[in-house]
Design a protein around this nucleic acid. Structure first.
Lengths: 180, 180
DNA sequence: ACCGGCATGTAACGGGTTACATGATTTT
DNA sequence: AAAATCATGTAACCCGTTACATGCCGGT
């Protein structure tokens, strides 16, 4: 699923600028399951516009560059619906932190601790962020997705809190052995 | 983290061929947190060999192409350790299925059902697969990672089992209304 | 005075995915 | 007889990430 399709999807939530779409990916509802930067969003919106799948309206602003607000056209909606008839690809997860934990025996104990703490903090933040959202007025299927994210973050945080000893077991043994 | 580094990491588990490393990514221990295909693994191993980070030994086989078994060199181990001092990048998840659920209102009810069933089945398989592994003799930090995967799969399956109504609520209402 | 947020975009680079190419052996 | 497994590799293409380029406004 390319960024163009994702942009069409984002625009079903209402008209938005490229800047605002980016925020949906980094903080908003899309954050759990996809990510995209300016470098892919702006060109994608440009192409969609050329193809007539989205419309664009410029809003003048003082000082800043004109804000370009995009909106889904009927053609764009049809195109999106077409994409949604595909079989979804398998989920893809890339976690450098988990790779590092897997190879923890080759790491410096102090650095490992730092990475672990950072990773846990990150998931705690994510969880807090989702928990602070208001569910009122959000349609059920979007709540389903939100809940999925919440369940995942919760599982990650709980697991890490309860099982960190597995990661630091050897180090602790080594330390205990040395200090004895 | 590029495929080269991942290959070095894979080879810490013992000598292996490109074909075997690929399997680690699709079924084995790396499956939860990274993926890679032949098109990236074979060139990566070639480059690592040129750089002297891995060694290669050809084993003749009848009928099949010679099996090339790679092994980590001292230089390669050092290089890997260097990579492991980095800050890990944030986890990246890409889930087309969740995008589709998010946009479920624009989907055909039957297709949505199919996608949901397939997605749940996939996570059940993953869970079963991890649960069938034997933990004996596996070092604690690898069990940590394995457990993380297990916790994630379990959370996904449970969540979907308990909350599918959110996804199909509207459809059911529509159907009920129509059939009445 | 400086940093973060608002706001858009381009260009190059890198890297991975996909498709192609080959072929024997084992399982169904 | 067909399909899956074992086994390696190349080449092109796509596409996304990163860095660069610009500039004002508001808060600390």
């Amino acid at each position: 699923m390319d960024v163009k399709t994702l942009c069409l999807g984002a625009l079903t939530l209402g008209n938005a600028s490229g800047y605002e779409i980016k925020k949906m990916f980094e903080e908003g509802p899309f954050a759990y399951f996809h990510q995209a930067g300016y470098g892919s969003i702006y060109p994608a919106l440009g192409k969609l516009c050329e193809e007539g799948l989205v419309s664009m309206q410029e809003h003048e602003q003082d000082g800043r560059p004109d804000k370009k607000v995009y909106g889904l056209t009927a053609k764009g909606k049809t195109a999106l619906e077409g994409k949604l008839t595909m079989q979804p690809a398998k989920d893809k997860v890339r976690s450098e932190a988990l790779v590092m934990f897997f190879l923890a025996e080759h790491m410096d104990a102090e650095h490992l601790r730092k990475v672990f703490d950072g990773y846990l903090a990150c998931y705690r933040d994510n969880l807090e962020c989702v928990n602070s959202l208001d569910d009122k007025g959000v349609s059920p299927h979007r709540l389903f997705v939100r809940g999925f994210g919440k369940a995942f973050y919760q599982a990650a945080v709980s697991y890490m809190e309860e099982n960190s000893h597995l990661l630091f077991a050897e180090t602790d043994l080594r330390k205990t052995g040395a200090s004895k």
